[in-house]
């Protein structure tokens, strides 16, 4: 710092004190000038405006997009973290499901809020499934789901089809864990949205191999009996 304050130095330290700006050395220690700058600096939690994300408007990030690479790394770490705590594949899928569930609960609120005046409470099975295949899917992945089918064998089962789940795009499951599908995370999100809309159910993710779409995934949605009873009354 001493040569900065030398009279013939070309570097002029910035300071609100005009005597320093003009290059005249004073008794003021130069470090004191950097203190207010530190206060206003941004970090992960607080932006430079001293506002947390809770102070922002909820629609601010409505159209913004995330880096797929950074998501891939984060999701990879989530899987490795979950893997350390479990013994079997089913346990791992359950863990991922729980992680997604917490997101789905919050997402339902946010999406309904963002729908504004056109938001309505879905009471029919088809309505809420459309909401998931269109609104929720578009919000999460920027595209609608590739298909929605009703099971022929079971009255209470529906299938949501995704030809190439975004969460699985960088993941190759090893042969010895071939039953695992990491889209269980997305299944958790869907389950939470359905539960939150009072359609209690179980959602599981299954890989269905096809030549054309090697990572095709089917989300099997199994509603509880109460949902079907209500559906029958409404019809």
């Amino acid at each position: 710092m001493s040569n900065l304050n030398a009279p013939n130095s070309p570097f002029v330290p910035f300071s609100p004190n005009p005597s320093i700006q003009s290059g005249v050395p004073t008794a003021t220690p130069p470090l004191s000038a950097s203190k207010p700058a530190q206060l206003g600096s941004s970090n992960l939690r607080y932006a430079s405006s001293r506002k947390s994300i809770y102070d922002r408007h909820l629609n601010r990030t409505q159209r913004s997009e995330l880096s797929k690479a950074s998501f891939a790394f984060l999701f990879g770490e989530m899987i490795q973290y979950a893997q350390k705590q479990v013994s079997g594949i089913q346990d791992l899928e359950k863990k991922l499901n729980i992680q997604g569930y917490a997101i789905g609960q919050r997402l339902l609120e946010l999406l309904l809020y963002r729908e504004g005046r056109s938001a309505k409470r879905e009471t029919r099975v088809l309505g809420i499934l459309q909401f998931i295949a269109q609104t929720l899917y578009r919000h999460l992945f920027g595209k609608p789901a590739d298909g929605l089918e009703k099971s022929r064998e079971h009255e209470d089962e529906y299938m949501l089809i995704d030809h190439d789940p975004v969460v699985n795009s960088h993941i190759s499951v090893p042969k010895e864990m071939s039953q695992l599908n990491c889209a269980a995370f997305v299944a958790g999100i869907i389950e939470a949205v359905l539960d939150g809309s009072l359609f209690p159910c179980r959602v599981t993710a299954h890989s269905v191999f096809s030549e054309q779409f090697p990572s095709k995934t089917v989300f099997l949605i199994k509603f509880e009996e109460s949902v079907l009873e209500r559906e029958a009354v409404l019809q």
């Binding site: 891939a72 999701f75 899987i79 993941i171 190759s172 090893p174």
Partner: peptide
């Protein structure tokens, strides 16, 4: 970088067995 290093089941420095990478 995309299909091996971002795969959570790949152990670094070990032989690459990733379907997605092959494909």
């Amino acid at each position: 970088a995309d299909y091996v290093m971002k795969n959570p089941f790949y152990q670094i420095e070990m032989p690459i067995r990733c379907e997605q990478f092959d494909r």
